[in-house]
C-alpha cells in the first residue's frame, strides 16, 4: 500500500464527506430551526439531479443545469413546505415521519411517471473532465477536486450566512426560542419556508453535482439520506459545525474502511476470507462509528438539545 494510494483515498473520503455535508447541512438546519424530521430530503436530492439532467440535455450547459437543480429543488421544497410540512410543526415526530415517508412515495413514483423508468444522462463538462497531477505525482480527477472546493465554499457561505447576516440572526434566534422571534415581529412562516427551501436547494445541488459522476435514477436519494442521518446523529442534531465534522468522519470511515480493513485482515487470515470478512465489516463501519460516538456522547459531538 503506497503513500500515493493513501493520499488518493483520503481525498476520495474528503470528497464523499463534503457532498454528504451538503445533504446533512440542510437536514440539520431544518431540524434546528423548525424541529422537523424530514425523510423526504433524499427526494429533493433526486429532484435536483433530474432537473440538472433534463436541463443539461436541453441546453448542453452544466452551469445552467446546476442552476436548474438549485431552483427546482428550492421550489419543490417551498411547495411541500407550504402544502404539507407547515401543518406538521405542531405535531409530534411520529406524524412527521409518516407524512414525509408518504412524500417519498409521491416523489419517487411521480418522477418515474414524468421521466420514465430508465436512468438519465448527466455528464461532467469537458472543462472539468480528466485527471490533473497533484504535487507528489498523484493523479486525481479534476471534477472531484472541484467537488471538494465547491463543498467547502458552500460550507463557508453557510457559516457566513448564519453568523453574519440578518437572516442568520433570525435562524439562530429561531433555534433558541420560537415564540420570541414571532413576538419580535419576524414573519415566522416566511422564515420557515425560506429555511426549508434553502435546505432543499443544498440537497438539490448535491444531487446534481454527484449525479454527474453517478447514476441519475429514481430512488438515488434514499441511501444518501440514511448516511446523512448518521452524519447528523454523530455531529449533533441542529449543529452545522457538527454536520461538517460528522460528514467528514463518515466519508473517511466509509472510504478508507472498505480499502484498509480487508488489507488489515489479510495479516491474520487467508486472502479470500479477509476480503469477504473485511468488506462485510466495512459495510457496517459507519454504524459502528455512530454507536461508539453515542456511547461517548449521547447527543452527538456538538449537539446541545436531546
Amino acid at each position: 500500500m503506497s503513500f500515493i494510494l493513501i493520499v488518493e483515498q483520503v481525498l476520495n473520503g474528503l470528497q464523499f464527506g463534503v457532498m454528504l455535508f451538503l445533504m446533512a447541512a440542510g437536514l440539520t438546519l431544518i431540524f434546528g430551526v423548525m424541529g422537523l424530521i424530514n425523510l423526504a430530503h433524499g427526494s429533493l436530492y433526486m429532484v435536483g439531479a433530474f432537473a440538472a439532467a433534463a436541463v443539461a440535455g436541453w441546453t448542453g450547459s452544466f452551469l445552467l443545469a446546476l442552476l436548474a437543480a438549485l431552483m427546482a429543488a428550492a421550489l419543490a421544497g417551498a411547495i411541500i413546505e407550504m402544502v404539507v410540512i407547515r401543518r406538521l410543526y405542531a405535531t409530534d415526530h411520529l406524524d412527521q415521519v409518516l407524512a414525509t415517508f408518504a412524500l417519498i412515495l409521491v416523489f419517487s413514483e411521480g418522477t418515474r411517471w414524468v421521466f420514465g423508468s430508465f436512468p438519465l444522462f448527466l455528464d461532467i463538462p469537458d472543462y472539468l473532465s480528466g485527471p490533473v497531477t497533484l504535487p507528489g505525482g498523484i493523479q486525481y480527477p479534476l471534477y472531484r477536486l472541484t467537488l471538494i472546493v465547491v463543498g467547502l465554499l458552500v460550507g463557508l457561505g453557510l457559516w457566513a450566512l448564519i453568523e453574519r447576516t440578518r437572516l442568520g440572526i433570525q435562524i439562530r434566534a429561531g433555534e433558541n426560542d420560537r415564540e420570541m422571534i414571532a413576538a419580535l415581529g419576524v414573519d415566522i412562516s416566511k422564515l420557515y419556508t425560506l429555511v426549508f427551501a434553502l435546505g432543499a436547494a443544498l440537497a438539490g445541488l448535491a444531487g446534481a453535482l454527484v449525479g454527474a459522476i453517478q447514476s441519475v435514477q429514481v430512488g438515488m436519494g434514499e441511501p444518501v439520506l440514511i448516511l446523512a442521518f448518521v452524519v447528523i446523529v454523530i455531529g449533533g442534531i441542529g449543529s452545522i459545525k457538527g454536520a461538517f465534522i460528522g460528514a467528514l468522519l463518515v466519508g473517511l470511515t466509509d472510504t478508507l474502511g472498505g480499502i484498509f480493513l480487508p488489507e488489515l485482515f489479510k495479516l491474520v487470515m487467508s486472502p479470500a476470507a479477509a476480503t469477504s470478512f473485511g468488506s462485510s465489516l466495512a459495510s457496517i463501519g459507519i454504524y459502528l462509528l455512530m454507536a461508539a460516538v453515542l456511547i461517548w456522547r449521547p447527543t452527538g459531538l456538538f449537539g446541545a438539545r436531546a
Partner: peptide
C-alpha cells in the same frame, strides 16, 4: 486484484484508485 464492493454503491473512486495502483 479482486474486490467486492458494497451492493448499491455509487462511488467507485476508492476502487479506481486501487486499480490504478
Amino acid at each position: 486484484g479482486e474486490i467486492y464492493t458494497k451492493l448499491g454503491q455509487t462511488d467507485y473512486a476508492a476502487e479506481i484508485a486501487q486499480i490504478r495502483a
